[in-house]
Design a protein around this nucleic acid. Structure first.
Lengths: 235, 235
DNA sequence: GCCGCCAGCATTGTTAACAATAATTGTTAA
DNA sequence: TTAACAATTATTGTTAACAATGCTGGCGGC
């Protein structure tokens, strides 16, 4: 695979945001990152430039890199964009889905349900996002897949900021219905369910609250490992 | 505005590709760029990292940065993505378009027609892209606008590679019809015309040919100024 | 005469030191 | 006690030198 340190950093940051370990507004210091991934600052800066180009972080001159904090307006735009893109993805998926795919999607939904009952938030977020991204892969359109990856990541950020009760993408029932429509090859139903699902998600947002918590960057990035050699560097 | 040298480079490269001054496969050397924009290599590298993150250039290790050369498959994906995104943009535009916007769009179409009759390819490409991007702005969705900017740029690259007769986005008649449907607020007609327009564009591609010409990077990036102080660096 | 090899050159990648800017802390006076 | 100011510290930004890699052209062998 691609073991370039810069891509490693990019993936780690995106994964961390996707599992809500890295909250909106968190600062990504160059020194901290170069220590964590033991590479020089040049690589860190390249990684941050990439993330900035994808609007994952914001680069404030002489201040550093911060995880973006989407506004309510941006949140609406994200979900509108998702409806546009996932609509096409769903249509394409109808003609390409196989039995093996269905089996995978069902297993994934089960995992999501289990994660939710276990209150395992990261696993729940991961499986839910995986559902959408698997369909995107199925569509065979790598550009739409890439766009959706950015949008689902940003959705997670938005849910972390504006979601009171952590439903996340929790409506497994919606996912189940979508899979059923896929099997039935019922395009009209599928498109309706997909759109409804996204509207449901959006409807659960509450723009009055906006949490921008902060914690140890190392745990956020690398996950909550049991033993930690160094005291956590401050955010 | 944002006069950071790295963003300057990014914009210059994107503009150059949009007007087909920079062809697919062109190499972007660090030394050349740092000379052209008189900045240090660090800024150049940041710019190239940004462009790579947007899949505008490809970063080959120890080789340098090259403008991407979309395959036939990628071309199809680009146009499919455009249909998905511009569909939503068109719908949004219906509810937001003003008389002033219509006037602008009409003027832009005239300019496009004129550029075509004058065989001014860069102007033709610029106005045509502007038509699509103006609608995107009109939609009020900055995310879709950004996605479409990437897609139109890539479309230009694709047209440069696979278009025998340079129609570019030349079907002004299509644009005219779209504006008319916008005025009439006829959603059904508008969506049909927008989709047809993109399908027409795609249908004109010829994947048997694939031109990857090369020239002087300075003229390509900064435009063909009449007098040039230095002999052109090699590609 | 054609192909492979080797040296020199150009370009990219890495690192470290230094400068500039912002944040923090401590001090002093009202 | 608080507010403003000054000094310190930490972080980012810039630059240059060096290392490593890939490319080019000339040479000799087949």
């Amino acid at each position: 695979m691609d073991a370039q340190p810069e891509n490693q950093i990019v993936r780690a940051v995106i994964d961390a945001i996707s599992e809500q370990r890295l909250p909106a507004g968190a600062k990504l210091g160059e020194q901290v990152l170069s220590d964590l991934f033991d590479c020089n600052r040049a690589n860190v800066r390249r990684a941050l430039a990439s993330l900035a180009a994808q609007h994952v972080v914001e680069l404030r001159p002489n201040r550093g890199a911060f995880v973006v904090a989407p506004s309510a307006q941006e949140a609406r735009e994200v979900f509108q964009a998702r409806r546009a893109i996932e609509r096409t993805i769903a249509r394409q998926a109808i003609g390409r889905v196989t039995d093996a795919d269905i089996a995978y999607l069902r297993a994934n939904i089960s995992a999501e349900t289990e994660a939710r009952t276990l209150r395992d938030k990261p696993a729940e977020l991961r499986t839910s996002q995986r559902f959408h991204m698997y369909l995107a892969q199925l569509s065979g359109n790598r550009i739409l897949e890439r766009f959706l990856a950015e949008l689902t990541m940003r959705s997670t950020l938005i849910l972390g900021m504006y979601s009171a009760e952590g439903h996340s993408c929790a409506r497994c029932d919606d996912h189940r219905g979508i899979v059923d429509a896929l099997i039935a090859r019922d395009e009209e139903l599928l498109l309706r369910l997909a759109e409804e699902h996204l509207r449901n998600l959006e409807a659960e947002l509450n723009f009055d609250i906006s949490t921008t918590s902060a914690g140890g960057l190392k745990d956020q990035l690398l996950g909550p490992k049991p033993s930690s050699d160094k005291p956590v560097t401050r955010l």
